[in-house]
Design a protein around this nucleic acid. Structure first.
Length: 433
RNA sequence: GUCGCCAUAGCUCAACUGGCAGAGCGUUCCUUUGUGAAAGGAAUGGUUGGGGGUUCAAGUCCCCUUGGCGACCCCA
């Protein structure tokens, strides 16, 4: 074998036939649960105007600053491979006048997204997300319904040790004040912070809250918490979210330091993890390893920011490859190969010709039948029949081809019966029943 | 963008201190030319990721590069 001349670009991967059952299963579960809750599918282009993301996702975010695949078209437009779903779906909502349909609009989508970053396990440059959005609903109950949906999807996919963390980051009323408060507090202790956090005070104060440096965490633990400084409206919204959460069977915990990388979030934000105990023995802290699988939140200003009406919305996205990797290692094991109940084997040209027609008959009655018409060796064909898990092999040799008969071989017992060729479909239907 | 570890057959991995590149699995064939799963046999498979250097000699040491993994950054 020659050395491959080409390989997948950094951070991209092939979804091979063996992976497909996992993607299929994940997609089916997502779709079933989402449509049960009244969500409709939408597909938006993988390419959008670059400005949609710089305005929507936010100029100060890492995604926009360093992770976007931007390309210039021959016509001179700047397009971007979508790094997330939300701005595209909001654009579709506005562009197609969905505000004049009964609200809210509940949408889901499934597909690839692109982020230029350093790949690691479970982190790709092209990966897949399942995404849902509810546009035109401000009630906190919908925030909780979305959490519930993703929790149940992951549960149904048998992902272990799920944990939900939740926080509120306020809105344009109260967050600016809190940010000032936090910045003042941090500035008074600036000397004890890491270099990144000193930069963050100016650029993105909230990010200091989830810094992993121990010295920063110590300072943060004494810092004012946003939940104590929410405005009346945000406070009552969050309170009601927590009340609804208590109502359903989803275990959650409040994390006052949870913040998000996207600018447009308001009020509720949350993440769903699968937790693992740290394998590292030297790690004396018993922090579990958190594997973020899905995350989302409310974005009450985004529709307006992108030129639509003042419409409130909330959404969440799940990383498909991360879920798949957990399913493979500790969750649901899926069969590698689909099986065929019947295999057609042949010897000789006349038999091949009869086989071509016979396959059509089986397709007509929807019985999957495998074959290897290209092979001449009967031995090889039976080997294949075994491999695809056939219960019966239909065999046409020179003799059978001439006198219009066919051999049915029971692969378990080895017993063979010869029947008329035009009766075989009925006979197999009967036996498979 | 920063730092560390790793890269050997399609897959999983061996190869001492620098000394003939190997095994299992897989694939194909044979034992059986009209009959699978078992067993036995054979074949197939490599510029040791790529490039350069040191050396009588490099999978092994050094430099560069590409990719993967991990820690940052950040995130699904």
């Amino acid at each position: 074998m020659k050395k491959p001349r080409f390989k997948t670009p950094t951070g991209t991967h092939d979804i091979l036939p063996d992976d497909q059952p996992y993607f299929q299963k994940i997609y089916n579960v997502c779709e079933n649960i989402a449509s049960f809750y009244g969500f409709k599918k939408i597909d938006t282009p993988i390419l959008e105007e670059t400005e949609l993301f710089s305005k929507g996702t936010g100029l100060t975010t890492d995604i926009v600053q360093k992770q976007m695949y931007v390309l210039k078209t021959k016509g001179g437009d700047y397009l971007t491979l979508r790094p997330e779903f939300t701005p595209g779906i909001v654009r579709a909502y506005i562009e197609h006048g969905m505000q004049s349909l009964p609200q809210p609009i509940k949408l889901y989508s499934f597909g690839p997204v692109f982020r230029y970053e350093h790949p690691q396990a479970g982190r790709y440059r092209q990966f897949h997300q399942f995404d849902i959005e509810v546009i035109g609903e401000e009630s906190p109950v919908i925030d909780v319904q979305i959490i519930n949906i993703f929790y149940n999807i992951l549960k149904e996919l048998k992902v272990k040790n799920l944990a939900v963390e939740i926080n509120s980051i306020g809105d344009s009323q109260c967050r600016p004040y809190y940010k000032k408060l936090l910045a003042n507090y941090l500035r008074s202790r600036e000397g004890a912070l890491c270099a990144d956090c000193r930069r963050r005070i100016r650029e993105n104060v909230l990010r200091v809250l989830d810094c992993k440096e121990e010295k920063c965490q110590r300072i943060v633990s004494q810092a004012p918490q946003i939940i104590d400084h929410l405005c009346e409206e945000c406070h009552s919204h969050f309170k009601r979210v927590l009340e609804f959460l208590d109502e359903i069977e989803v275990p959650y915990r409040l994390n006052p330091y949870l913040v998000r990388g996207l600018d447009y979030y308001t009020k509720t934000i949350f993440e769903i993890f699968s937790e693992e105990k740290s394998k590292d023995e030297s790690d004396t802290k018993d922090f579990p390893v958190k594997n973020a699988l899905a995350s989302g939140g409310r974005y009450d200003n985004l529709v307006k920011m992108l030129g639509g009406d003042n419409v409130k919305a909330v959404g969440c996205a799940m990383g498909v490859e991360r879920v798949q990797s957990l399913m493979r290692t500790r969750g649901l094991q899926l069969k590698k190969q689909e099986t065929y109940p019947v295999f057609f084997a042949q010897i000789g040209n006349l038999a091949k010709r009869k086989g071509l027609k016979l396959l059509e008959e089986f397709r007509g009655v929807k019985i999957p039948i495998a074959e290897s018409l290209g092979k001449d060796s009967l031995k090889a064909q039976l080997g294949l029949a075994d491999k695809v898990g056939a219960q019966y092999t239909l065999l046409v040799g020179q003799r059978e081809a001439l006198d219009g008969s066919i051999i049915i071989r029971d692969m378990k017992t080895g017993r063979q019966d010869t029947v008329k060729l035009d009766k075989v479909v009925k006979e197999i239907e009967k036996r498979l029943r």
